[in-house]
Amino acid sequence: MIKWIREGQVWNSIFRHGIPRDRRTRAMAVLSNVFLHLHPVAVRKSGIRLSFTWCMGGLTFFLFLVEIVTGVLLMFYYRPVVEYAYNDIQAMRSGVVSMGLLREIHRWAAHAMIIAIWLHMLRVFLTGSYKPPREFNWTVGVILLVLTMLLSFTGYLLPWDQLAMWAITVGSNMARATPLAGHEGPGASFLVIDGVPLIHAGSDARFQLLAGTFVGPNALLRFYVLHCVFIPVVVTVLIAVHFWRIRKDGGISGPL
Protein backbone atom coordinates (compact mmCIF):
# COMPACT_ATOMS: atom_id res chain seq x y z
CA MET A 1 0.00 0.00 0.00
CA ILE A 2 2.68 2.50 1.09
CA LYS A 3 4.73 1.44 -1.86
CA TRP A 4 1.75 2.04 -4.11
CA ILE A 5 1.32 5.58 -2.81
CA ARG A 6 5.04 6.26 -3.04
CA GLU A 7 5.19 5.27 -6.63
CA GLY A 8 1.95 6.88 -7.68
CA GLN A 9 1.69 10.06 -9.70
CA VAL A 10 0.26 12.11 -6.83
CA TRP A 11 3.14 11.47 -4.43
CA ASN A 12 5.75 12.02 -7.05
CA SER A 13 4.19 15.24 -8.19
CA ILE A 14 4.58 16.61 -4.66
CA PHE A 15 7.90 15.15 -3.56
CA ARG A 16 10.43 15.08 -6.33
CA HIS A 17 13.06 13.19 -4.41
CA GLY A 18 13.39 9.85 -2.69
CA ILE A 19 13.24 9.32 1.04
CA PRO A 20 15.98 11.46 2.59
CA ARG A 21 18.31 8.64 3.46
CA ASP A 22 21.56 9.43 1.73
CA ARG A 23 23.50 12.60 1.04
CA ARG A 24 21.90 13.31 -2.29
CA THR A 25 18.28 12.81 -1.32
CA ARG A 26 18.79 14.69 1.93
CA ALA A 27 20.15 17.65 0.05
CA MET A 28 17.23 17.36 -2.34
CA ALA A 29 14.77 17.32 0.57
CA VAL A 30 15.96 20.74 1.61
CA LEU A 31 16.51 22.22 -1.82
CA SER A 32 13.19 21.27 -3.34
CA ASN A 33 11.06 22.38 -0.43
CA VAL A 34 10.18 26.05 -0.42
CA PHE A 35 10.02 26.18 3.39
CA LEU A 36 13.10 24.16 4.19
CA HIS A 37 14.83 26.06 1.45
CA LEU A 38 15.20 28.87 3.96
CA HIS A 39 18.14 26.80 5.09
CA PRO A 40 21.27 26.08 3.17
CA VAL A 41 21.89 22.41 2.42
CA ALA A 42 24.76 22.11 4.83
CA VAL A 43 25.67 24.21 7.82
CA ARG A 44 28.62 24.61 10.09
CA LYS A 45 28.44 22.10 12.87
CA SER A 46 29.14 24.57 15.65
CA GLY A 47 26.44 26.90 14.42
CA ILE A 48 23.58 24.54 15.10
CA ARG A 49 24.71 23.35 18.49
CA LEU A 50 21.75 23.98 20.72
CA SER A 51 23.96 25.56 23.34
CA PHE A 52 25.17 28.09 20.77
CA THR A 53 21.92 29.52 19.34
CA TRP A 54 19.53 28.21 21.99
CA CYS A 55 17.25 27.92 18.97
CA MET A 56 15.86 31.25 20.15
CA GLY A 57 15.56 32.89 16.74
CA GLY A 58 13.78 29.82 15.47
CA LEU A 59 11.42 29.81 18.44
CA THR A 60 10.69 33.49 17.97
CA PHE A 61 9.74 32.73 14.41
CA PHE A 62 7.65 29.75 15.43
CA LEU A 63 5.80 31.80 18.03
CA PHE A 64 5.14 34.42 15.39
CA LEU A 65 3.56 31.74 13.20
CA VAL A 66 1.46 30.56 16.14
CA GLU A 67 0.27 34.13 16.57
CA ILE A 68 -0.68 34.42 12.91
CA VAL A 69 -2.68 31.20 12.91
CA THR A 70 -4.47 31.77 16.21
CA GLY A 71 -4.88 35.46 15.44
CA VAL A 72 -6.62 34.85 12.13
CA LEU A 73 -8.97 32.42 13.84
CA LEU A 74 -9.73 34.94 16.56
CA MET A 75 -10.58 37.53 13.93
CA PHE A 76 -13.58 35.43 12.94
CA TYR A 77 -15.15 36.04 16.33
CA TYR A 78 -14.08 39.54 17.21
CA ARG A 79 -15.47 42.92 16.13
CA PRO A 80 -13.32 45.98 16.83
CA VAL A 81 -16.11 48.31 17.93
CA VAL A 82 -16.73 49.40 21.47
CA GLU A 83 -20.25 47.96 21.55
CA TYR A 84 -19.11 44.44 20.71
CA ALA A 85 -15.43 44.02 21.51
CA TYR A 86 -15.71 43.16 25.18
CA ASN A 87 -18.73 40.92 24.69
CA ASP A 88 -17.05 39.04 21.89
CA ILE A 89 -14.11 38.25 24.13
CA GLN A 90 -16.44 37.33 26.95
CA ALA A 91 -18.29 34.97 24.64
CA MET A 92 -15.02 33.24 23.82
CA ARG A 93 -14.15 33.03 27.46
CA SER A 94 -17.40 31.59 28.63
CA GLY A 95 -17.46 29.15 25.77
CA VAL A 96 -20.50 30.61 24.03
CA VAL A 97 -18.47 30.30 20.89
CA SER A 98 -16.34 27.21 21.25
CA MET A 99 -12.82 28.37 20.76
CA GLY A 100 -10.96 25.90 22.89
CA LEU A 101 -7.80 27.51 24.07
CA LEU A 102 -7.30 29.84 21.12
CA ARG A 103 -7.36 33.05 23.04
CA GLU A 104 -5.17 31.63 25.78
CA ILE A 105 -2.61 30.39 23.30
CA HIS A 106 -2.67 33.67 21.42
CA ARG A 107 -2.03 35.66 24.57
CA TRP A 108 0.62 33.45 26.12
CA ALA A 109 2.46 32.95 22.87
CA ALA A 110 2.60 36.73 22.53
CA HIS A 111 4.22 37.04 25.93
CA ALA A 112 6.51 34.14 25.12
CA MET A 113 7.54 35.78 21.85
CA ILE A 114 8.61 38.91 23.70
CA ILE A 115 10.76 36.86 26.05
CA ALA A 116 12.13 34.75 23.21
CA ILE A 117 13.12 37.78 21.14
CA TRP A 118 14.93 39.34 24.09
CA LEU A 119 16.82 36.11 24.70
CA HIS A 120 17.61 35.75 20.99
CA MET A 121 19.07 39.21 21.07
CA LEU A 122 21.06 38.37 24.18
CA ARG A 123 22.61 35.34 22.52
CA VAL A 124 23.39 37.27 19.32
CA PHE A 125 25.03 39.92 21.46
CA LEU A 126 27.01 37.56 23.67
CA THR A 127 28.39 35.63 20.71
CA GLY A 128 29.41 38.91 19.08
CA SER A 129 27.31 37.96 16.07
CA TYR A 130 26.45 41.59 15.36
CA LYS A 131 30.01 42.24 14.28
CA PRO A 132 30.94 42.51 10.61
CA PRO A 133 29.58 41.29 8.27
CA ARG A 134 26.33 41.05 10.26
CA GLU A 135 25.87 44.68 11.37
CA PHE A 136 22.96 45.27 9.06
CA ASN A 137 21.11 42.15 10.10
CA TRP A 138 21.41 43.24 13.70
CA THR A 139 19.77 46.51 12.67
CA VAL A 140 16.96 44.63 10.97
CA GLY A 141 16.65 42.68 14.21
CA VAL A 142 16.34 45.83 16.30
CA ILE A 143 13.48 47.02 14.08
CA LEU A 144 11.86 43.60 14.50
CA LEU A 145 12.25 43.96 18.23
CA VAL A 146 10.46 47.30 18.27
CA LEU A 147 7.71 46.02 15.99
CA THR A 148 7.21 42.89 18.07
CA MET A 149 6.70 44.98 21.18
CA LEU A 150 4.32 47.29 19.32
CA LEU A 151 2.46 44.25 18.06
CA SER A 152 1.96 43.11 21.61
CA PHE A 153 1.10 46.61 22.78
CA THR A 154 -1.59 47.16 20.13
CA GLY A 155 -3.07 43.75 20.85
CA TYR A 156 -3.26 44.51 24.54
CA LEU A 157 -6.08 47.00 23.92
CA LEU A 158 -8.38 44.75 21.96
CA PRO A 159 -10.18 42.89 24.80
CA TRP A 160 -11.47 46.33 25.83
CA ASP A 161 -11.52 45.60 29.53
CA GLN A 162 -10.14 47.73 32.32
CA LEU A 163 -6.75 46.05 32.09
CA ALA A 164 -6.54 46.85 28.39
CA MET A 165 -7.85 50.38 28.42
CA TRP A 166 -5.73 51.60 31.30
CA ALA A 167 -2.53 49.91 30.24
CA ILE A 168 -2.84 51.61 26.88
CA THR A 169 -3.80 54.89 28.54
CA VAL A 170 -0.68 54.78 30.70
CA GLY A 171 1.48 53.81 27.73
CA SER A 172 0.10 56.30 25.26
CA ASN A 173 0.17 59.14 27.79
CA MET A 174 3.90 59.17 27.19
CA ALA A 175 3.33 60.50 23.71
CA ARG A 176 1.88 63.61 25.31
CA ALA A 177 5.37 64.47 26.48
CA THR A 178 7.14 64.03 23.16
CA PRO A 179 9.54 66.93 22.74
CA LEU A 180 8.04 69.45 20.28
CA ALA A 181 5.30 67.05 19.14
CA GLY A 182 3.40 66.48 22.38
CA HIS A 183 1.34 69.20 24.01
CA GLU A 184 3.07 68.64 27.33
CA GLY A 185 6.46 68.05 25.78
CA PRO A 186 9.37 70.42 26.12
CA GLY A 187 9.44 73.06 23.45
CA ALA A 188 5.96 72.44 22.05
CA SER A 189 4.74 75.76 23.41
CA PHE A 190 7.16 77.55 21.09
CA LEU A 191 5.42 76.22 18.01
CA VAL A 192 2.94 78.98 17.56
CA ILE A 193 1.66 80.53 14.36
CA ASP A 194 0.01 83.94 14.68
CA GLY A 195 -0.67 83.32 18.32
CA VAL A 196 -2.39 80.00 17.66
CA PRO A 197 -0.58 77.03 19.18
CA LEU A 198 0.29 74.41 16.63
CA ILE A 199 0.52 71.60 19.15
CA HIS A 200 -2.39 71.12 21.50
CA ALA A 201 -4.27 68.16 22.98
CA GLY A 202 -6.24 67.85 19.75
CA SER A 203 -3.29 67.76 17.39
CA ASP A 204 -0.28 66.32 19.18
CA ALA A 205 1.52 63.00 18.89
CA ARG A 206 -0.82 61.31 21.32
CA PHE A 207 -3.83 62.47 19.36
CA GLN A 208 -2.36 61.00 16.19
CA LEU A 209 -1.69 57.70 17.92
CA LEU A 210 -5.17 57.36 19.42
CA ALA A 211 -7.16 59.25 16.82
CA GLY A 212 -8.65 61.16 19.73
CA THR A 213 -7.81 62.75 23.03
CA PHE A 214 -8.54 59.58 25.01
CA VAL A 215 -8.53 55.83 24.47
CA GLY A 216 -11.91 55.53 22.75
CA PRO A 217 -13.59 53.89 19.76
CA ASN A 218 -11.22 55.44 17.24
CA ALA A 219 -8.22 54.19 19.14
CA LEU A 220 -9.72 50.70 19.23
CA LEU A 221 -10.18 50.63 15.48
CA ARG A 222 -6.78 52.10 14.86
CA PHE A 223 -5.05 49.61 17.12
CA TYR A 224 -7.01 46.77 15.56
CA VAL A 225 -5.86 47.61 12.05
CA LEU A 226 -2.29 48.12 13.19
CA HIS A 227 -2.38 44.87 15.14
CA CYS A 228 -4.02 42.64 12.56
CA VAL A 229 -2.75 44.03 9.30
CA PHE A 230 -0.12 46.69 9.22
CA ILE A 231 2.47 45.53 11.74
CA PRO A 232 2.23 41.79 10.91
CA VAL A 233 2.79 42.53 7.22
CA VAL A 234 5.84 44.67 7.95
CA VAL A 235 7.19 42.07 10.38
CA THR A 236 6.73 39.32 7.81
CA VAL A 237 8.66 41.26 5.21
CA LEU A 238 11.43 42.06 7.66
CA ILE A 239 11.70 38.46 8.81
CA ALA A 240 12.18 37.51 5.16
CA VAL A 241 14.97 40.07 4.91
CA HIS A 242 16.41 38.84 8.21
CA PHE A 243 16.56 35.22 7.04
CA TRP A 244 17.88 36.14 3.64
CA ARG A 245 20.64 38.14 5.21
CA ILE A 246 21.63 35.36 7.60
CA ARG A 247 22.55 33.30 4.55
CA LYS A 248 24.06 36.15 2.60
CA ASP A 249 26.23 37.03 5.58
CA GLY A 250 27.70 33.56 5.60
CA GLY A 251 25.27 31.62 7.76
CA ILE A 252 25.22 31.40 11.53
CA SER A 253 28.31 33.05 12.88
CA GLY A 254 31.33 31.16 14.10
CA PRO A 255 34.95 31.84 14.90
CA LEU A 256 36.78 33.07 11.80
Binding site: P20, R23, R26, A27, A29, V30, L36, H39, P40, V41, A42, V43, R44, K45, S46, G47, I48, R49, L50, F52, C55, G58, G254, P255, L256
Partner: peptide
Protein backbone atom coordinates in the same frame (compact mmCIF):
# COMPACT_ATOMS: atom_id res chain seq x y z
CA UNK B 1 37.33 26.98 21.02
CA UNK B 2 34.05 25.26 21.72
CA UNK B 3 32.85 26.61 18.40
CA UNK B 4 35.99 25.55 16.52
CA UNK B 5 35.94 23.51 13.37
CA UNK B 6 34.63 26.12 10.99
CA UNK B 7 34.88 23.73 8.10
CA UNK B 8 33.02 20.82 9.65
CA UNK B 9 29.76 20.95 7.80
CA UNK B 10 26.73 18.87 8.49
CA UNK B 11 23.61 18.44 6.40
CA UNK B 12 20.59 20.47 7.36
CA UNK B 13 18.46 17.41 6.90
CA UNK B 14 18.50 15.66 9.34
CA UNK B 15 20.69 17.51 11.86
CA UNK B 16 19.11 20.94 11.91
CA UNK B 17 15.61 20.07 10.79
CA UNK B 18 15.24 17.50 13.54
CA UNK B 19 16.51 19.86 16.22
CA UNK B 20 14.08 22.50 15.04
Amino acid sequence: LLEAGADDKVLVWPDLVYTE
